[in-house]
Amino acid sequence: MLEGKVKWSNSEKGFGFIEVEGQDDVFVHFSAIQGEGFKTLEEGQAVSFEIVEGNRGPQAANVTKEA
């Protein structure tokens, strides 16, 4: 699992980007967020995730919010 911080997200469009130190930003779709209820990410929020190869390149999977 990698750790990063949410660079920005748009809940209306359903995606955002995660900033990882020393690496390119990672695309995240809201379907990759683990948990119940409305899935949102806040700018600056710490997250853990895996990287998978998506249709348009690397993207985050199994995203969990850190406490």
Score class of each variant (00 low, 15 high):
residue 49 F to C: 03
residue 46 A to F: 14
residue 67 A to F: 12
residue 20 V to A: 05
residue 26 V to D: 00
residue 2 L to S: 07
residue 16 G to F: 14
residue 46 A to W: 15
residue 62 N to C: 11
residue 12 E to Y: 10
residue 40 T to V: 11
residue 63 V to P: 02
residue 27 F to C: 06
residue 64 T to R: 14
residue 64 T to I: 14
residue 59 Q to T: 07
residue 63 V to I: 05
residue 48 S to D: 03
residue 22 G to L: 05
residue 50 E to H: 12
residue 56 R to K: 11
residue 36 E to W: 10
residue 16 G to E: 00
residue 14 G to K: 11
residue 46 A to Q: 12
residue 57 G to A: 04
residue 7 K to W: 05
residue 67 A to T: 13
residue 46 A to D: 08
residue 56 R to T: 07
residue 23 Q to T: 08
residue 66 E to I: 15
residue 50 E to M: 13
residue 33 I to Y: 04
residue 15 F to G: 01
residue 39 K to S: 09
residue 64 T to P: 01
residue 26 V to M: 03
residue 21 E to P: 13
residue 66 E to S: 15
residue 1 M to Q: 11
residue 44 G to S: 03
residue 27 F to R: 01
residue 53 E to H: 13
residue 62 N to T: 06
residue 65 K to C: 08
residue 44 G to V: 02
residue 20 V to C: 07
residue 61 A to D: 06
residue 53 E to V: 14
residue 28 V to F: 15
residue 64 T to C: 11
residue 39 K to I: 09
residue 58 P to W: 09
residue 43 E to C: 15
residue 61 A to T: 09
residue 16 G to W: 15
residue 20 V to Q: 04
residue 23 Q to I: 11
residue 10 N to Q: 06
residue 56 R to L: 09
residue 8 W to N: 02
residue 18 I to E: 01
residue 22 G to P: 02
residue 44 G to P: 00
residue 12 E to G: 09
residue 34 Q to L: 14
residue 41 L to V: 07
residue 60 A to C: 04
residue 39 K to T: 09
residue 3 E to M: 15
residue 34 Q to D: 07
residue 66 E to W: 13
residue 63 V to M: 02
residue 54 G to Q: 04
residue 8 W to M: 02
residue 10 N to M: 06
residue 38 F to G: 10
residue 51 I to W: 04
residue 5 K to I: 14
residue 54 G to C: 09
residue 16 G to C: 05
residue 31 S to A: 07
residue 54 G to S: 10
residue 50 E to G: 05
residue 11 S to K: 15
residue 18 I to V: 03
residue 8 W to S: 00
residue 53 E to P: 11
residue 3 E to S: 15
residue 6 V to C: 07
residue 60 A to F: 01
residue 64 T to F: 13
residue 6 V to N: 02
residue 53 E to C: 15
residue 59 Q to V: 10
residue 59 Q to D: 01
residue 29 H to Q: 04
residue 29 H to R: 03
residue 20 V to N: 02
residue 59 Q to A: 07
residue 34 Q to V: 14
residue 15 F to R: 00
residue 30 F to Q: 05
residue 41 L to I: 07
residue 20 V to F: 04
residue 55 N to L: 15
residue 45 Q to V: 10
residue 65 K to F: 14
residue 15 F to M: 03
residue 13 K to H: 08
residue 11 S to P: 15
residue 2 L to K: 10
residue 22 G to D: 07
residue 56 R to Q: 08
residue 4 G to I: 04
residue 28 V to R: 00
residue 63 V to S: 02
residue 12 E to T: 11
residue 12 E to S: 12
residue 39 K to A: 10
residue 10 N to L: 07
residue 56 R to M: 08
residue 17 F to E: 02
residue 4 G to H: 01
residue 47 V to R: 00
residue 2 L to Y: 14
residue 22 G to R: 03
residue 37 G to M: 07
residue 25 D to R: 02
residue 57 G to E: 02
residue 32 A to R: 00
residue 18 I to N: 00
residue 46 A to I: 15
residue 29 H to K: 04
residue 28 V to Q: 01
residue 7 K to E: 04
residue 6 V to W: 07
residue 1 M to R: 15
residue 66 E to V: 15
residue 26 V to G: 00
residue 32 A to P: 03
residue 18 I to R: 00
residue 43 E to I: 15
residue 5 K to F: 13
residue 54 G to V: 04
residue 21 E to N: 10
residue 42 E to R: 13
residue 42 E to P: 09
residue 46 A to R: 15
residue 20 V to P: 00
residue 1 M to L: 13
residue 53 E to M: 15
residue 2 L to R: 10
residue 59 Q to C: 09
residue 62 N to G: 06
residue 53 E to F: 14
residue 16 G to M: 04
residue 26 V to P: 00
residue 23 Q to P: 02
residue 29 H to L: 08
residue 28 V to A: 05
residue 62 N to I: 03
residue 29 H to A: 07
residue 53 E to Q: 14
residue 49 F to E: 02
residue 49 F to A: 02
residue 30 F to D: 02
residue 15 F to W: 15
residue 11 S to E: 10
residue 67 A to E: 12
residue 3 E to T: 15
residue 10 N to V: 05
residue 16 G to D: 01
residue 61 A to L: 07
residue 62 N to E: 04
residue 30 F to V: 06
residue 48 S to Q: 13
residue 15 F to Q: 01
residue 10 N to T: 05
residue 29 H to G: 04
residue 50 E to W: 14
residue 50 E to A: 08
residue 61 A to I: 13
residue 53 E to D: 10
residue 61 A to F: 09
residue 30 F to N: 04
residue 58 P to A: 07
residue 13 K to L: 11
residue 46 A to M: 14
residue 38 F to R: 10
residue 31 S to Q: 05
residue 4 G to V: 04
residue 34 Q to M: 13
residue 45 Q to W: 10
residue 2 L to F: 13
residue 33 I to C: 05
residue 29 H to I: 06
residue 34 Q to G: 09
residue 45 Q to L: 07
residue 28 V to M: 07
residue 35 G to I: 05
residue 15 F to L: 05
residue 4 G to W: 02
residue 62 N to R: 08
residue 12 E to F: 11
residue 44 G to R: 03
residue 55 N to I: 15
residue 58 P to H: 06
residue 10 N to I: 06
residue 53 E to I: 15
residue 16 G to V: 03
residue 1 M to I: 14
residue 15 F to Y: 14
residue 44 G to C: 07
residue 45 Q to I: 08
residue 50 E to V: 13
residue 54 G to F: 07
residue 24 D to Y: 09
residue 24 D to G: 11
residue 56 R to S: 08
residue 11 S to Q: 14
residue 34 Q to T: 13
residue 11 S to A: 14
residue 21 E to I: 11
residue 33 I to D: 02
residue 45 Q to D: 15
residue 37 G to W: 08
residue 66 E to Q: 15
residue 27 F to N: 01
residue 2 L to V: 11
residue 56 R to G: 07
residue 43 E to K: 15
residue 3 E to R: 15
residue 9 S to M: 15
residue 11 S to L: 14
residue 25 D to W: 06
residue 30 F to L: 05
residue 36 E to G: 11
residue 10 N to R: 03
residue 42 E to C: 14
residue 20 V to M: 08
residue 22 G to M: 04
residue 23 Q to G: 11
residue 7 K to Q: 04
residue 1 M to D: 05
residue 10 N to F: 08
residue 47 V to F: 01
residue 54 G to W: 06
residue 40 T to L: 10
residue 57 G to V: 01
residue 21 E to C: 14
residue 53 E to T: 12
residue 7 K to D: 04
residue 2 L to A: 08
residue 43 E to Q: 14
residue 32 A to Y: 06
residue 41 L to N: 01
residue 5 K to V: 14
residue 36 E to K: 09
residue 51 I to C: 07
residue 4 G to L: 04
residue 25 D to G: 04
residue 56 R to Y: 13
residue 28 V to I: 08
residue 18 I to T: 02
residue 22 G to Q: 05
residue 39 K to H: 10
residue 49 F to Q: 01
residue 66 E to A: 14
residue 21 E to V: 11
residue 14 G to P: 03
residue 67 A to S: 12
residue 20 V to H: 03
residue 55 N to E: 12
residue 21 E to G: 07
residue 31 S to G: 07
residue 39 K to D: 09
residue 34 Q to N: 13
residue 28 V to T: 03
residue 25 D to C: 08
residue 4 G to Q: 01
residue 33 I to N: 02
residue 12 E to W: 10
residue 43 E to N: 12
residue 25 D to N: 06
residue 47 V to N: 00
residue 7 K to R: 08
residue 14 G to F: 09
residue 58 P to Y: 09
residue 18 I to K: 00
residue 25 D to V: 06
residue 52 V to W: 07
residue 65 K to V: 15
residue 64 T to M: 13
residue 29 H to N: 05
residue 47 V to T: 01
residue 47 V to Y: 05
residue 10 N to K: 05
residue 43 E to P: 15
residue 27 F to Y: 08
residue 27 F to V: 01
residue 10 N to C: 11
residue 61 A to E: 07
residue 24 D to A: 14
residue 45 Q to Y: 06
residue 40 T to D: 09
residue 10 N to D: 11
residue 28 V to P: 02
residue 1 M to V: 13
residue 25 D to H: 03
residue 14 G to V: 06
residue 50 E to N: 13
residue 3 E to C: 15
residue 36 E to A: 11
residue 14 G to L: 09
residue 58 P to D: 04
